[in-house]
């Protein structure tokens, strides 16, 4: 029996007058890869940022509804604790202006790990998991900005992994990358799903088909359909879903 990791109930989000998410109900299971597809402004990124509580950085943000995480109220966790447990990888690679090592060690340091040996261990393990270790092991003390775009994005994944999250949110992580870098990141994801729950927002339908266990389709702030990936792509129930995946709009 699969465990429910996150349950989202009747989630509504507004930014000022804009109603960005409308009555979203969906569950995220333990150790699955959930991909979210949909055209621009469909609310998929807003949904993802909800789970990392980043939306509330905006002043005009309001929401209603309920989220259950590990059988507890989402908002009973402190923001910092929650963001540690639910990590986020952004669309564009944003290395912090630090060295490669310090980028990865940033999270563990925040969460109280001071011991240099322990930090080294975490950094190496995280970089290996992100398929980056071999490429950067000799320049851990170089500025992270010297890495290539694809390497930077894998560095960001390693940085998130170093916090030892339970869920990793990916917000179109390959949108700025070439096919080779994209393949490497997808490879890393395949490996990661053994131990983590992944939520992947993508506007690349093929990527969703390749990586996702289940796929959700968002349109104009509504969840149109959520289904096992193979079924959604072969026999969509809603004809808007069919229209989108066959490339008629979006």
């Amino acid at each position: 029996m699969v465990e429910k990791k996150v349950e989202v109930k009747n989630l509504n989000v507004w930014f000022g007058q804009t109603h960005s998410l409308k009555d979203i109900n969906l569950d995220i299971y333990d150790n699955e890869v959930l991909t979210i597809i949909g055209p621009a402004n469909s609310g998929k990124t807003t949904f993802l940022r909800m789970l990392n509580r980043l939306n509330e950085l905006q002043e005009n943000f309001r929401f209603s509804g309920e989220i259950i995480f590990d059988h507890k109220n989402f908002f009973d966790f402190s923001v910092q604790e929650l963001r540690k447990k639910i990590g986020m990888v952004f669309a564009l690679p944003v290395p912090l202006p630090l060295t490669v090592f310090d980028n990865v060690a940033y999270g563990p340091k925040l969460h109280g790990i001071r011991d240099r040996g322990k930090l080294k261990e975490i950094v190496e393990r995280s970089l290996r998991l992100a398929y980056l270790w071999e490429e950067v092991k000799d320049r851990l003390n170089a500025s992270a900005f010297l890495l290539s775009g694809g390497q930077q994005q894998r560095l960001c994944i390693a940085r998130t992994l170093a916090c030892e999250p339970e869920i990793i949110l990916f917000d179109e992580p390959c949108s700025g990358l070439d096919p080779v870098s994209t393949a490497k990141i997808e490879e890393a994801m395949q490996e990661l799903k053994k131990d983590y729950t992944l939520v992947l927002v993508t506007n690349n339908v093929k990527q969703a088909a390749r990586v996702g266990d289940r796929t959700a389709f968002f349109l104009s702030g509504e969840l149109i359909e959520i289904e096992r990936t193979d079924r959604l792509f072969t026999a969509p129930k809603d004809n808007r879903t069919e229209g989108y995946i066959s490339g008629r709009f979006g």
Binding site: E81, L82, G87, P97, G107, R159
Partner: peptide, 25 residues
């Protein structure tokens, strides 16, 4: 850049930790 702040916060830093570690330096 604002993105640095967002990244730091998303990794579980408090606002002040973000300012102290990333913004001020």
């Amino acid at each position: 850049p604002y993105a640095f702040r967002e990244v730091s916060l998303s990794l579980g830093a408090t606002k002040w930790q973000t300012i102290k570690n990333i913004v001020l330096p």
